[in-house]
Amino acid sequence: MQFWKFAAIPLAALALTACESQAEQEADLAEDQMEAQAEQSAAEAGNEEAALGMTEAQLLDAELVDADGNELGEIEQVNRNAMGTVDGLVVELEGTDRYVVVPMRNLVAHSDGDDQDVRTTRTAKQLAALPDAKMPGATETADAM
């Protein structure tokens, strides 16, 4: 009898997963891969400054905010060019499932008490106009969404 109590949880999770479309499952997998890559990269970078006077871990913990401090999105990954220099931040836009790469231009670190955020001069509308970020492992079907 006790077995069924524990088996119900995985079965319920499986049922929820079965309700998702293939594209949603691929998007979830790509998001999980991106988060794992970001965590690994931050761990490898350690306390080394990545950009804006912040470590990679601090950047990943920060929110992207506008000039008034309103949250525009959550920083999910640090983008680096071929030379290893940070050239953009992958941000999940607030209230959406969209990810965009925000170039470092016009970004500054902003402290609000104990919190560190990244401030941009861009508006939510300007961020929404940026192209979608390429997600790791995403297929063309998932990218089209």
Score class of each variant (00 low, 15 high):
2 Q>S: 13
50 A>M: 08
120 T>C: 00
87 D>K: 04
31 E>Q: 13
95 G>V: 12
34 M>G: 09
132 D>I: 05
21 S>G: 12
113 G>A: 09
86 V>Y: 04
13 A>N: 05
26 E>C: 06
134 K>N: 12
18 A>P: 02
93 L>Y: 08
74 E>H: 04
75 I>R: 05
70 N>W: 05
100 V>E: 07
94 E>Y: 05
59 L>M: 09
40 Q>S: 12
23 A>V: 15
20 E>H: 06
29 L>M: 04
129 A>K: 15
95 G>D: 14
108 V>S: 15
26 E>V: 09
79 N>F: 01
86 V>H: 07
129 A>S: 15
13 A>I: 14
78 V>M: 04
128 A>H: 06
12 A>D: 02
126 Q>H: 07
27 A>G: 03
145 M>L: 15
23 A>F: 06
82 A>D: 12
69 G>A: 06
142 A>W: 06
10 P>T: 11
13 A>S: 10
121 T>Q: 07
54 M>K: 10
137 G>R: 11
90 V>M: 11
73 G>D: 03
57 A>E: 08
7 A>C: 11
131 P>E: 14
21 S>N: 08
140 E>A: 14
1 M>N: 02
22 Q>P: 01
18 A>E: 09
15 A>M: 12
117 D>E: 14
34 M>K: 12
127 L>D: 02
123 T>S: 13
96 T>N: 14
109 A>C: 11
111 S>Q: 15
2 Q>D: 11
114 D>I: 07
61 D>F: 00
136 P>Y: 11
31 E>P: 00
87 D>L: 01
80 R>C: 08
125 K>A: 09
126 Q>N: 05
133 A>R: 05
100 V>Y: 10
26 E>Y: 03
51 A>I: 03
109 A>W: 08
48 E>W: 03
3 F>V: 05
74 E>C: 02
104 M>V: 12
55 T>N: 02
133 A>H: 04
70 N>H: 05
8 A>M: 08
71 E>R: 12
119 R>C: 01
74 E>K: 07
120 T>F: 00
110 H>P: 02
134 K>S: 11
72 L>F: 02
118 V>E: 10
99 Y>H: 10
126 Q>C: 06
112 D>T: 12
40 Q>I: 09
35 E>K: 14
65 V>P: 00
22 Q>N: 06
60 L>H: 03
12 A>K: 06
3 F>P: 00
61 D>R: 08
118 V>L: 13
25 Q>P: 00
32 D>Y: 04
94 E>G: 01
74 E>R: 04
33 Q>C: 01
90 V>N: 10
62 A>I: 06
99 Y>P: 02
55 T>Q: 01
78 V>R: 03
111 S>K: 15
42 A>P: 03
107 L>I: 11
111 S>F: 11
78 V>S: 02
119 R>T: 03
80 R>H: 10
79 N>I: 04
71 E>M: 08
97 D>Y: 12
76 E>T: 08
143 D>I: 07
54 M>E: 06
28 D>V: 00
145 M>W: 13
39 E>N: 15
47 N>T: 01
9 I>V: 15
101 V>R: 13
69 G>C: 05
110 H>I: 09
88 G>E: 04
71 E>N: 06
7 A>E: 14
130 L>P: 04
52 L>F: 05
116 Q>R: 15
